[in-house]
Amino acid sequence: MKWPQLDYSAWKDSGDALHMWAQIVGKFRLANTPWLNHSWHATLYPDARGLTTGLIPGGWEVRFDFIDHRLVVLAASGDSAGFDLAPMSVSAFNAAFKDRLRAVGAPDVYHARPNEVPDPVAFAHQTEPGAYDRAAVTAWWQALVAMLPLFQEFRTGFLGKVSPVHLFWGSFDLAVTRFSGREAPLHPGGFPALPDTITQEAYSHEVSSAGFWAGGNGAEEAMFYSYAYPVPDGFADFPAGPDAARFDTDLGEFLLPYRAVATADDPRGMLLEFLNATYVAAAEAGKWDRASLDCEMGRPGIPRSL
């Protein structure tokens, strides 16, 4: 698949709106799903048409369809209800979503304010007009579709505990996380509008985490990232893989511009080189038991060798 160009300036306003809309949908899943370690029960997943919650207990699924540009609420009963995705306020999206939940018999009660944003305003009170540029949203989703198989392939090269590849609606990034198996020091927390208890549980054990976000928060272009918690001594001094990758001292993590991957002769090779090199940095600097944790990446139809 050809990797689309991503223009942060064209995406920003639509991305800000979609971030809030995804939080609303994610909070519906959060309110109706038993808690799973590291908040894995609350995430969204890219699929062949957009983003989905997957099946939520009670028999509901919510989908952002970026082909038809609709928000659809599905019920296992066969009922469905939706509305067109178009420029609208967060408040209008929230009201339309609640209406469609009720139409299929789903509960419409969930936490009413966003997380991981400074000075959060309740969804119902965010009445300023919102943007929705179909071309920018489609390009962002197609980028997720292009990179998802590579994150999934990278995930297979590890025998230890590893997260699904999923999209966190709080930080609005695609992520996959490997765990050393050892407990980590208590995280100090401090993320805006996020209880420290959630952060501390998420980082209860040592991690090497990698992912993608479309820009903002110190990097005004789309970036792949990789970080470790706790940050081991010497982590930043390890090679980051591709020439275009670097360690950002302000953010405290390795970065690789999306544009470098999208325009590379071998996007797969470049991204996997970055993911593997930065994992090695975390695991070697952190003295992980790589002999027990690492393995060859999986191949279709071939069982893992013992």
Score class of each variant (00 low, 15 high):
R102I: 09
E201M: 12
L71F: 01
A146M: 06
F247I: 10
V261R: 09
S226M: 01
V176A: 09
L101P: 09
L271R: 07
K27A: 03
S39Q: 07
H19P: 03
D68A: 14
D265W: 06
L150E: 11
R178K: 13
L30Y: 04
P87G: 04
H41V: 07
F28A: 13
A146C: 15
A143Q: 01
F274S: 11
W140L: 13
A244F: 06
T138P: 04
I67W: 02
R49A: 12
P188T: 02
F235A: 00
L194K: 14
D266G: 09
E273L: 09
E220D: 15
T199P: 00
E221G: 07
R290P: 01
P129V: 01
A291K: 13
P120W: 05
L167M: 15
A31I: 04
M297W: 03
N217K: 15
H125I: 00
L271N: 11
A95N: 11
M297A: 13
Q200A: 15
P303T: 06
F191Q: 12
A143C: 06
D99L: 06
G211T: 11
T43N: 15
F28G: 07
D265P: 07
D265R: 14
W3P: 01
R246V: 08
A135V: 12
M88C: 00
S89M: 04
G211W: 11
Q23G: 06
I198E: 08
L306Y: 14
P257G: 01
P118W: 04
T43K: 15
N32V: 05
L174T: 02
G54R: 09
G234C: 06
S91M: 00
D237H: 07
H38K: 14
G215M: 02
G59H: 09
A86D: 05
D173R: 11
M297R: 15
A103Q: 11
G105H: 08
E128R: 10
N115D: 07
T43V: 12
Y229S: 00
F172N: 13
A122Q: 04
P257A: 04
F97Y: 08
E153K: 13
P46G: 11
D65K: 07
S204C: 15
L44G: 13
L30D: 14
V280H: 13
H125C: 08
G218V: 10
G157L: 09
L174G: 07
G218P: 07
E296M: 10
Y229K: 02
Y229A: 04
A264M: 05
A260R: 03
G181N: 00
F224H: 08
A240G: 09
D294I: 03
A260M: 00
P107C: 05
R290Q: 09
F66E: 12
I302P: 01
D173K: 13
A291G: 08
P129H: 02
L18F: 10
A75G: 14
F123N: 00
D294A: 12
R102T: 10
G218M: 03
P46K: 11
S226Y: 01
P4A: 04
Y279H: 15
D250L: 14
V261M: 11
D79Q: 12
L293N: 10
D79V: 03
G189F: 04
G252E: 08
N94H: 08
V121M: 13
K12G: 00
D7K: 05
H69V: 10
K12Q: 13
A75F: 12
E206Q: 14
